[in-house]
Protein backbone atom coordinates (compact mmCIF):
# COMPACT_ATOMS: atom_id res chain seq x y z
CA UNK A 1 0.00 0.00 0.00
CA UNK A 2 2.90 2.31 0.56
CA UNK A 3 3.29 2.13 -3.21
CA UNK A 4 0.02 4.00 -3.63
CA UNK A 5 0.72 7.56 -4.76
CA UNK A 6 -0.41 10.76 -3.13
CA UNK A 7 -1.65 12.17 -6.42
CA UNK A 8 -4.09 10.83 -8.97
CA UNK A 9 -2.83 8.97 -12.03
CA UNK A 10 -4.73 8.49 -15.33
CA UNK A 11 -7.14 5.59 -15.26
CA UNK A 12 -8.99 3.24 -17.54
CA UNK A 13 -12.50 1.94 -16.95
CA UNK A 14 -13.30 -1.32 -18.68
CA UNK A 15 -16.66 -3.04 -18.83
CA UNK A 16 -16.37 -6.65 -17.72
CA UNK A 17 -18.59 -9.67 -17.09
CA UNK A 18 -17.80 -12.25 -14.44
CA UNK A 19 -19.48 -15.35 -13.00
CA UNK A 20 -21.20 -15.28 -9.63
CA UNK A 21 -23.01 -18.47 -8.74
CA UNK A 22 -25.13 -19.35 -11.74
CA UNK A 23 -25.22 -15.81 -13.15
CA UNK A 24 -22.91 -13.56 -15.12
CA UNK A 25 -22.74 -10.11 -13.66
CA UNK A 26 -21.97 -6.79 -15.30
CA UNK A 27 -19.11 -4.86 -13.80
CA UNK A 28 -16.77 -1.96 -14.39
CA UNK A 29 -13.11 -2.54 -13.73
CA UNK A 30 -11.14 0.64 -13.06
CA UNK A 31 -7.37 0.74 -12.88
CA UNK A 32 -4.38 2.98 -13.34
CA UNK A 33 -3.49 3.19 -17.00
CA UNK A 34 0.29 3.03 -16.90
CA UNK A 35 1.14 2.45 -13.26
CA UNK A 36 1.55 -0.64 -11.07
CA UNK A 37 -1.41 -1.79 -9.02
CA UNK A 38 -0.93 -1.71 -5.26
CA UNK A 39 -4.05 -3.62 -4.27
CA UNK A 40 -7.57 -4.43 -5.34
CA UNK A 41 -10.93 -3.22 -4.09
CA UNK A 42 -14.38 -4.71 -4.53
CA UNK A 43 -17.35 -2.40 -4.03
CA UNK A 44 -20.63 -3.82 -2.76
CA UNK A 45 -23.30 -1.20 -3.28
CA UNK A 46 -26.65 -0.45 -1.64
CA UNK A 47 -29.71 -2.66 -1.88
CA UNK A 48 -30.60 -3.20 -5.54
CA UNK A 49 -33.99 -1.65 -4.96
CA UNK A 50 -32.56 1.39 -3.21
CA UNK A 51 -30.13 2.71 -5.77
CA UNK A 52 -27.74 -0.21 -5.64
CA UNK A 53 -26.16 -0.16 -9.06
CA UNK A 54 -22.81 0.74 -10.49
CA UNK A 55 -23.94 4.29 -11.22
CA UNK A 56 -24.38 5.04 -7.53
CA UNK A 57 -22.41 8.13 -6.56
CA UNK A 58 -20.51 6.46 -3.70
CA UNK A 59 -19.78 3.30 -5.66
CA UNK A 60 -18.65 5.17 -8.74
CA UNK A 61 -16.79 7.86 -6.83
CA UNK A 62 -14.81 5.31 -4.85
CA UNK A 63 -14.27 3.04 -7.84
CA UNK A 64 -12.78 5.80 -9.96
CA UNK A 65 -11.00 7.50 -7.07
CA UNK A 66 -9.27 4.37 -5.81
CA UNK A 67 -8.19 3.47 -9.35
CA UNK A 68 -6.50 6.84 -9.61
CA UNK A 69 -4.58 5.89 -6.46
CA UNK A 70 -3.42 2.64 -8.10
CA UNK A 71 -5.94 0.42 -6.36
CA UNK A 72 -7.71 -1.58 -9.08
CA UNK A 73 -11.42 -1.49 -8.29
CA UNK A 74 -14.43 -3.48 -9.41
CA UNK A 75 -17.96 -2.15 -9.12
CA UNK A 76 -20.80 -4.25 -10.36
CA UNK A 77 -24.52 -4.66 -10.69
CA UNK A 78 -26.08 -7.26 -8.45
CA UNK A 79 -27.97 -10.12 -10.10
CA UNK A 80 -31.02 -8.89 -11.97
CA UNK A 81 -29.83 -5.28 -12.12
CA UNK A 82 -28.83 -3.55 -15.35
CA UNK A 83 -27.21 -6.08 -17.64
CA UNK A 84 -26.42 -8.58 -14.90
CA UNK A 85 -28.22 -11.87 -15.27
CA UNK A 86 -30.67 -12.72 -12.54
CA UNK A 87 -33.56 -14.86 -11.45
CA UNK A 88 -36.97 -14.66 -13.04
CA UNK A 89 -39.24 -12.92 -10.57
CA UNK A 90 -42.73 -11.54 -10.53
CA UNK A 91 -41.58 -7.95 -10.36
CA UNK A 92 -44.88 -6.49 -9.20
CA UNK A 93 -45.14 -8.87 -6.22
CA UNK A 94 -41.44 -8.49 -5.57
CA UNK A 95 -41.75 -4.71 -5.34
CA UNK A 96 -44.95 -4.92 -3.33
CA UNK A 97 -43.19 -7.09 -0.78
CA UNK A 98 -40.29 -4.68 -0.67
CA UNK A 99 -42.67 -1.80 -0.11
CA UNK A 100 -44.24 -3.58 2.85
CA UNK A 101 -41.15 -5.08 4.50
CA UNK A 102 -38.09 -3.29 3.06
CA UNK A 103 -36.77 -6.76 2.25
CA UNK A 104 -37.03 -9.19 -0.64
CA UNK A 105 -36.56 -12.97 -0.51
CA UNK A 106 -32.99 -14.22 -0.71
CA UNK A 107 -31.49 -10.76 -0.58
CA UNK A 108 -28.72 -11.95 1.72
CA UNK A 109 -27.70 -14.44 -0.98
CA UNK A 110 -26.24 -11.47 -2.79
CA UNK A 111 -23.03 -12.09 -0.85
CA UNK A 112 -22.39 -14.65 -3.60
CA UNK A 113 -22.27 -11.76 -6.07
CA UNK A 114 -19.61 -10.09 -3.94
CA UNK A 115 -17.76 -13.40 -3.78
CA UNK A 116 -17.85 -13.62 -7.58
CA UNK A 117 -16.44 -10.11 -7.80
CA UNK A 118 -13.68 -10.92 -5.31
CA UNK A 119 -12.77 -14.13 -7.13
CA UNK A 120 -12.64 -12.23 -10.41
CA UNK A 121 -10.39 -9.56 -8.96
CA UNK A 122 -8.06 -12.00 -7.27
CA UNK A 123 -7.57 -13.80 -10.57
CA UNK A 124 -7.13 -10.67 -12.65
CA UNK A 125 -4.16 -8.44 -11.75
CA UNK A 126 -2.20 -10.53 -9.22
CA UNK A 127 -3.56 -13.04 -6.66
CA UNK A 128 -1.03 -11.86 -4.09
CA UNK A 129 -2.32 -8.30 -3.93
CA UNK A 130 -4.13 -7.21 -0.77
CA UNK A 131 -7.91 -6.96 -1.04
CA UNK A 132 -10.14 -4.20 0.26
CA UNK A 133 -13.78 -5.19 0.69
CA UNK A 134 -15.85 -2.02 0.61
CA UNK A 135 -19.52 -2.04 1.45
CA UNK A 136 -21.93 0.85 1.27
CA UNK A 137 -25.28 0.67 3.03
CA UNK A 138 -26.83 -2.80 2.47
CA UNK A 139 -23.57 -3.92 0.84
CA UNK A 140 -21.89 -3.81 4.25
CA UNK A 141 -24.07 -6.66 5.49
CA UNK A 142 -22.84 -8.96 2.71
CA UNK A 143 -19.10 -8.64 3.27
CA UNK A 144 -18.47 -10.93 6.28
CA UNK A 145 -19.78 -13.90 4.30
CA UNK A 146 -17.13 -13.53 1.60
CA UNK A 147 -14.28 -16.04 1.68
CA UNK A 148 -10.77 -14.67 1.22
CA UNK A 149 -8.40 -17.57 1.92
CA UNK A 150 -4.82 -16.43 2.34
CA UNK A 151 -5.43 -12.85 1.30
CA UNK A 152 -4.31 -9.79 3.18
CA UNK A 153 -7.50 -7.84 3.47
CA UNK A 154 -9.32 -4.94 5.04
CA UNK A 155 -12.99 -4.07 5.45
CA UNK A 156 -14.46 -0.64 4.79
CA UNK A 157 -18.06 -0.18 5.93
CA UNK A 158 -19.82 2.96 4.80
CA UNK A 159 -23.19 3.66 6.41
CA UNK A 160 -23.84 0.06 7.55
CA UNK A 161 -27.54 -0.74 7.83
CA UNK A 162 -27.50 -1.95 11.42
CA UNK A 163 -30.94 -2.91 12.66
CA UNK A 164 -32.16 -3.67 9.14
CA UNK A 165 -29.80 -6.54 8.36
CA UNK A 166 -27.76 -9.06 10.32
CA UNK A 167 -24.30 -7.79 11.30
CA UNK A 168 -23.45 -10.44 13.92
CA UNK A 169 -21.09 -12.21 11.51
CA UNK A 170 -18.63 -9.35 11.88
CA UNK A 171 -17.73 -10.73 15.29
CA UNK A 172 -15.71 -13.47 13.61
CA UNK A 173 -13.90 -11.13 11.21
CA UNK A 174 -10.29 -10.48 12.16
CA UNK A 175 -9.14 -8.27 9.27
CA UNK A 176 -8.86 -4.57 10.10
CA UNK A 177 -12.01 -2.54 9.57
CA UNK A 178 -12.90 1.10 9.03
CA UNK A 179 -16.50 2.10 9.75
CA UNK A 180 -17.78 5.39 8.37
CA UNK A 181 -21.13 6.51 9.73
CA UNK A 182 -23.05 9.64 8.99
CA UNK A 183 -24.38 11.34 12.11
CA UNK A 184 -27.59 12.28 10.32
CA UNK A 185 -28.17 8.88 8.72
CA UNK A 186 -31.91 8.10 8.47
CA UNK A 187 -31.17 4.39 8.24
CA UNK A 188 -29.42 3.83 11.53
CA UNK A 189 -29.31 5.19 15.04
CA UNK A 190 -25.94 6.65 16.13
CA UNK A 191 -26.07 4.85 19.47
CA UNK A 192 -26.65 1.55 17.75
CA UNK A 193 -23.53 2.07 15.63
CA UNK A 194 -21.44 2.76 18.72
CA UNK A 195 -22.73 -0.28 20.59
CA UNK A 196 -22.15 -2.63 17.66
CA UNK A 197 -18.73 -1.17 16.93
CA UNK A 198 -17.56 -1.60 20.51
CA UNK A 199 -18.26 -5.34 20.33
CA UNK A 200 -16.03 -5.89 17.29
CA UNK A 201 -12.77 -7.70 17.94
CA UNK A 202 -10.64 -6.78 14.91
CA UNK A 203 -8.31 -3.73 14.65
CA UNK A 204 -10.86 -1.05 13.93
CA UNK A 205 -11.61 2.60 13.49
CA UNK A 206 -14.91 4.48 13.58
CA UNK A 207 -15.42 7.81 11.83
CA UNK A 208 -18.61 9.75 12.51
CA UNK A 209 -19.63 13.10 11.11
CA UNK A 210 -22.45 14.64 9.13
CA UNK A 211 -22.21 13.24 5.61
CA UNK A 212 -25.44 14.12 3.79
CA UNK A 213 -27.71 11.73 5.63
CA UNK A 214 -27.17 8.27 4.12
CA UNK A 215 -26.07 9.48 0.70
CA UNK A 216 -22.60 11.14 0.81
CA UNK A 217 -23.42 13.43 -2.10
CA UNK A 218 -20.57 15.91 -2.38
CA UNK A 219 -18.42 13.80 -0.06
CA UNK A 220 -17.15 11.29 -2.62
CA UNK A 221 -13.62 12.72 -2.77
CA UNK A 222 -13.44 12.82 1.00
CA UNK A 223 -14.40 9.14 1.05
CA UNK A 224 -11.58 8.30 -1.36
CA UNK A 225 -9.02 10.16 0.76
CA UNK A 226 -10.29 8.54 3.94
CA UNK A 227 -10.31 5.03 2.54
CA UNK A 228 -6.86 5.38 0.96
CA UNK A 229 -5.49 6.79 4.22
CA UNK A 230 -6.87 3.86 6.19
CA UNK A 231 -5.60 1.24 3.76
CA UNK A 232 -2.18 2.88 3.66
CA UNK A 233 -1.98 2.72 7.45
CA UNK A 234 -3.03 -0.95 7.53
CA UNK A 235 -1.09 -2.33 4.59
CA UNK A 236 2.30 -0.71 5.23
Amino acid sequence: MSRLPQLDVPTVVEEVAFPAGSYRLQGELAYAEDAPVGGVAVLAGPHPLLGGNLHNNVVRGLGDGLAARQLASLRFNYRGVGRSEGPQVDVARHLAQFWQTSHVPDEMDLWQDVQGAVDFMRATPDPALPVALIGYSFGCALLPHVRLPGARSAFILIAPTLGKHDYDSYRSVDAPALVIASEDDFAVDAGEVQRWFSRLAMPKRLLRQRLDNHFFRGHESWLVETVVGFLRSQWR
Partner: peptide, 10 residues
Protein backbone atom coordinates in the same frame (compact mmCIF):
# COMPACT_ATOMS: atom_id res chain seq x y z
CA UNK B 1 -40.12 -7.72 -20.03
CA UNK B 2 -40.81 -7.04 -16.40
CA UNK B 3 -38.54 -9.77 -15.13
CA UNK B 4 -35.49 -7.84 -16.25
CA UNK B 5 -36.38 -4.97 -13.99
CA UNK B 6 -35.75 -6.54 -10.61
CA UNK B 7 -33.47 -3.69 -9.73
CA UNK B 8 -33.27 -0.05 -10.54
CA UNK B 9 -31.35 0.96 -13.59
CA UNK B 10 -30.90 4.28 -15.23
Amino acid sequence: DRTEAMGVTT
